[in-house]
Amino acid sequence: MAIAIEVETARGAGHIDHGGHGHSEHPPTSTGLDSRKMLMWLFLASDCMFFGTLISTYMIYRNRAIELGTPPYPNEIFDIPYTSVSAFVLLMSSLTMVLALSAIQRGDHRGLRIWIAATALLGAIFVGGQFFEFTEFTHEGLGLSTSVFGASFFVLTGFHGAHVTIGVVWLLSILFISLRGGMPAEKAVDVEIAGLYWHFVDIVWIVIFTLVYLIPYADGPEGVVEEAPHAFLRLVTVGERFLAALPF
């Protein structure tokens, strides 16, 4: 299949992606940075815009259910301690991800498998928790078409959940490859790239968790938006809720 061109060589100006199991010798790139890692960084830059757009939409609509008097309202249905636990689970998965990467960089295959499996498991617990939360909300009457608050909530958090799901599938694929012996230490960068993605998805959740769950909503279903509380007061409230929500 290859176009066989046998010519005296030159130093390639950069590394061309030849396929999964590429040549071991990678010609240096202009910047010295790995091209695939750079690709992931760029993807994450655009993913910031994806999430940014969804988060803005949510911020515009977060009080609409209250304003229009169409229950259920956010302050009624959000269970902050519950979601805090699942946020904590997701954050811990970043730790295990770091351990997985450092294991493979040391050539510790057993360590890689254990920590990758742990990361995938924690991610799966998070997704499962979200699934349960969604069903719970549906039971309480919040659907996609109940109100724009509900719609933007489900689309934003669902989009994030889809990211985590894809991440879990990716991690399991790495685990599978490693079990079949296809993940030598030289390919640690494969794990590193998955890790970049994983940490990003975690960080985004911190933003979403703060903006969706922690920042207080307008009170009262009377259809009036309350005067926005003083910024400092607001910050204190966020902090208080966060502390109250910690599982210990």
Partner: peptide
């Protein structure tokens, strides 16, 4: 000189069709 140094590295690798 450049070419000779590079001649040791191998051949021109072109990406495979896919």
């Amino acid at each position: 000189a450049v070419a000779e140094a590079e001649a040791e590295e191998g051949h021109i690798h072109l990406p495979n069709p896919s």
